[in-house]
Design a protein around this nucleic acid. Structure first.
Lengths: 354, 354
DNA sequence: CTGAAAGCGCTTACAG
DNA sequence: CTGAAAGCGCTTACAG
């Protein structure tokens, strides 16, 4: 019966000691005779003791200090605008509990800046860290230092299997490529061509986008479509003139292209071009509910956007650390969030939330 | 600064009274001189006082008693299997707090049974009620009685604007019809026909399914498709032989049908028929992630399922009542959950959750 | 009408 | 090594 939960007092009574002694055993603060210790541990187990979380939170002076280390959102990287909303929602919900959050951000294009910011994180003496491991080598190093200091950390957006992370929350990247493949397949006649565009400004994105591309292509291995009808294009510097030049050339060379899959979150740049040139109707399939993408989705230039719930990723990161640190709840190691298929008709439900 | 929140003690000190008096004012328990009362209220406002939730929960003996009144899940109504999972998750999450939940279920096809069960609900002396208002007249009556007793209640699955409900959590039914329309439009060649099937065994569903149908049709008012190419079929008793007879006849009469939209959660019944007859490839679009639907989705017989997050509806119902009753948080009156578009490639993320 | 006190279950010094 | 006590912020019952 959970209604009559065992309390420290009950354990003390059974063991014939005071609650102070029980507490010392439970918190492993030592200074207890071995015999007493064993007796108390056994009784606690027998009574299935777990501390009353409310009483503990009420009494505790010290706040849990969580620190997030995520890329700074910019005009060019609006994707990272959503995460702070999720962090904030989590903290608001945990309001009465002794937790606080410090947000540290780094420049998405600058490894050195990331390194500097990791120093800031340590200076904050965090109890737990939420990290987007954008720069692989630097992140591994940072994580090792966290592990050495016994500071638990969670990943979002991506993960490094080399590190001893508590949990990952995010997309199943390969599978999200498959979803894109399926949607593209559905709206593209069999005899037509498909163009895949990779926009890669910063190196880190390469792996991410490659995996999505692989997932995308893997969908077509079983389909009736001839895989030679899938053309790839890579654009390094997505300034409008490059977009125009390179996309335009690809379209001229392959006049049968009727769908364009953009592997990253910048499909609005392609849509800007397609719309300005008044090109024949094309299906554009892209990622992430950035304002500019959504606007093209609503006007019909983009057909599908795939969402990866960035706000929810951040929210869960905070919750997992809190639950782990103050309730000893160990989260699932890998949590893949649903891959959302978003069109002009259901998009409003995804952007107004929270 | 939320770090130095005002406490009852602080108010008492400023007012020059004891904390008992402050408490009496705050809880409107009377027996306080009017002048003192006003002074205390003013000070509380000045200090922006809000009670410490943890201390309150720790002290409070009495548990909040929430009661859910939802249809019983059966073989024929597997949709209602999901809601108890959401209720349970909410209660688990609220574990340390003084809340409990009693679940009352009724027969989805039996008004009289519903009436009997409302009596049970009152006998449980609920502090708040979660209700699926399946039977309109009976539900309005029940809600009026709740209102008279000042028992707050939330709706899920549907709502009655005639009632003074605290909040509704669920689908935007018309819009979900539009989403179905859009998906169907995308996968159906313009010169082909579309069949809408309404399976209505019990009366309550009529309104629900009609609204979805209207939403569906509304999507096509702007499309290039000739609306005469949309055929409607209604099946009252969905036993296999009826399905076979009626669907078969519709398909024979309209050989150009290439997509079937099933307005309710029983698209698997149509899919069973289509598959058994080895009919030429058709697109089936339906609702809800019932096991049988999902199985057809994975095998390809169903192309799209639209999800309405039943588990989440129930979860939020509990949370809203709890937040309202113990934190005085007033929820949004209408909360439309996202309309999920689900295919064989992303379905796993939607069914393993929780 | 008002105050003083006990207690929810835990943590944290402090005294011995 | 161990116990007794104070206190987190609130609620509740009781005395005056």
């Amino acid at each position: 019966m959970p209604s009559n939960k065992a309390r420290i007092k009950d354990i003390a009574a059974r063991a014939g000691v005071s609650i102070g002694t029980v507490d010392r055993v439970l918190h492993e603060r030592g200074e207890v005779a071995e015999k007493t210790r064993e007796r108390i541990i056994k009784i606690a187990k027998d009574l299935d003791y777990s501390p009353n979380f409310l009483a503990r939170a009420l009494k505790t002076k010290r706040k849990l200090h969580l620190v997030s280390l995520l890329p700074e959102a910019t005009e060019e990287n609006a994707f990272w605008l959503k995460h702070p909303l999720g962090l904030k929602r989590a903290i608001n919900e945990l309001d009465p509990f002794p937790v606080k959050l410090s947000q540290v951000t780094f420049d998405l294009l600058n490894e050195k800046n990331f390194l500097e910011k990791t120093v800031n994180v340590f200076n904050l003496h965090p109890d737990g860290v939420i990290l987007a491991p954008i720069f692989k080598a630097e992140s591994i190093d940072f994580c090792n230092r966290l592990t050495k200091k016994k500071i638990p950390f969670v990943f979002l957006d991506g993960y490094l299997k080399e590190s001893e992370f508590l949990s990952y929350t995010g997309e199943d990247i390969f599978q999200s490529g498959r979803v894109a493949g399926q949607l593209t397949d559905m709206v593209t006649p069999v005899q037509k061509d498909i163009l895949i565009i990779n926009i890669v400004r910063n190196l880190k994105n390469v792996e991410h986008l490659n995996i999505r591309t692989q997932g995308f292509l893997s969908y077509f291995t079983k389909s009736a479509r001839n895989s030679e009808r899938i053309i790839k294009l890579r654009i390094s510097d997505p300034v409008p003139e490059n977009i125009r030049k390179e996309t335009g050339r690809a379209l001229r060379r392959n006049p049968e292209i009727s769908s364009i899959f953009v592997t990253g979150s910048k499909s609005y740049k392609i849509a800007d071009f397609i719309r300005s040139e008044e090109i024949h109707p094309l299906n554009i399939i892209g990622y992430d509910l950035l304002e500019k993408n959504v606007s093209h989705l609503k006007s019909g230039t983009i057909k599908f956007l795939i969402g990866q719930r960035p706000e929810e990723q951040a929210y869960r990161g905070v919750r997992k650390l809190f639950d782990f640190l103050s309730l000893n709840k160990v989260p699932e190691k890998m949590e893949y969030l649903p891959i959302d298929i978003v069109t002009s008709e259901n998009v409003n439900f995804f952007i107004n939330n929270h």
